[in-house]
C-alpha cells in the first residue's frame, strides 16, 4: 500500500460466548497473527452532555483480539472479537459503531451463551448472522434447532461454520456482508416507496420482505 493513497477500513465484530472459537475464527481468515489491543475502560463515564460532572472514574482493562484481511489495494477488513464477559459489554457500543455487522458464533451445546449477543445486536439494529460452530464437522443440533432456540427473525441467516477453516470463515463473512447489503437495499427501497406514495397520495406501499443473505 502506498502511503500517498488513502486506505479505507471496515470492520466486522465476532461475538459469542466464552470459548466458542472467536479467536480461532479471526485467526483462520486473518493475514496477520491475531493481535490483542488493550482498552482501558471508564465505565463510569457519563452519558450526558454536562462535562462539568465528570464522575470519579473506575477503570479496568479489556483485551480484544483482532485480525485483518486486505480485500483490495485500498480496502482492509478488520475483525474484532468481542470481550466475552458480560461485565465488559459497555464497550461493545464503541466496537459496533460503524461496523458492517456481526457474526454470532454459537456452540449448540451451550446455546444460552449466545442469547445475550443476539439480544444486543437486535436491539442495536446491527446486521448479524448466526454461525453454528461445529468442531470436527460435528453439528449435534441442526440449523433449524439453533434458529428456533435463539428465536432470531426469519431474515437473519443461520449457517454452519468451522471456525478453523479459512474457506468456512470466509463463507460466514460473505453471508454477513450479503445480509447487511440486503438490509441496506431494502431500506433504500422502502424510502423510495414511501416517497412515491407520498407523491401519489394514495396506493399503500407493497411489501418487500425477501430473505437476506
Amino acid at each position: 500500500m502506498a502511503a500517498d493513497s488513502a486506505v479505507t477500513s471496515v470492520k466486522v465484530v465476532v461475538a459469542g460466548g466464552f470459548g466458542v472459537g472467536k479467536t480461532t475464527f479471526v485467526g483462520s481468515v486473518s493475514e496477520i497473527t491475531p493481535l490483542t489491543t488493550e482498552a482501558v475502560m471508564t465505565p463510569a463515564s457519563d452519558g450526558l452532555d454536562d462535562l462539568s460532572h465528570t464522575p470519579d472514574k473506575t477503570m479496568t482493562t479489556v483485551a480484544m483480539d483482532f485480525g485483518r484481511v486486505t480485500l483490495d489495494a485500498g480496502l482492509i477488513l478488520y475483525l474484532f472479537g468481542t470481550p466475552g464477559q458480560h461485565r465488559f459489554w459497555f464497550m461493545w457500543d464503541d466496537l459496533i459503531h460503524g461496523a458492517i455487522g456481526a457474526v454470532v458464533l454459537v456452540d449448540t451445546r451451550r446455546l444460552a451463551d449466545s442469547f445475550p449477543a443476539v439480544d444486543f445486536f437486535e436491539s442495536a439494529g446491527l446486521p448479524f448472522i448466526v454461525a453454528v460452530n461445529g468442531f470436527h464437522g460435528d453439528f449435534p443440533h441442526g440449523i433449524a434447532d439453533a434458529r428456533e432456540a435463539l428465536s432470531v427473525s426469519p431474515q437473519v441467516p443461520v449457517i454452519q461454520c468451522d471456525a478453523r477453516q479459512r474457506s468456512s470463515t470466509t463463507y460466514a463473512l460473505t453471508a454477513l456482508v450479503e445480509h447487511a447489503l440486503a438490509i441496506k437495499l431494502r431500506s433504500r427501497l422502502t424510502r423510495i416507496r414511501q416517497l412515491s406514495v407520498r407523491r401519489q397520495g394514495s396506493a399503500a406501499p407493497g411489501r418487500s420482505r425477501g430473505s437476506g443473505g
Partner: peptide, 26 residues
Amino acid sequence: IHQLNHAQGGPDVELLERVLSGLRRL
C-alpha cells in the same frame, strides 16, 4: 487519518459491494 463518516450508520451500499467482491476473491 482516514476513517469513514458513519453518520449514515455503517458502510454504504457501494462499499459493501466492494467488500463482497474482495471476500469472493479470497
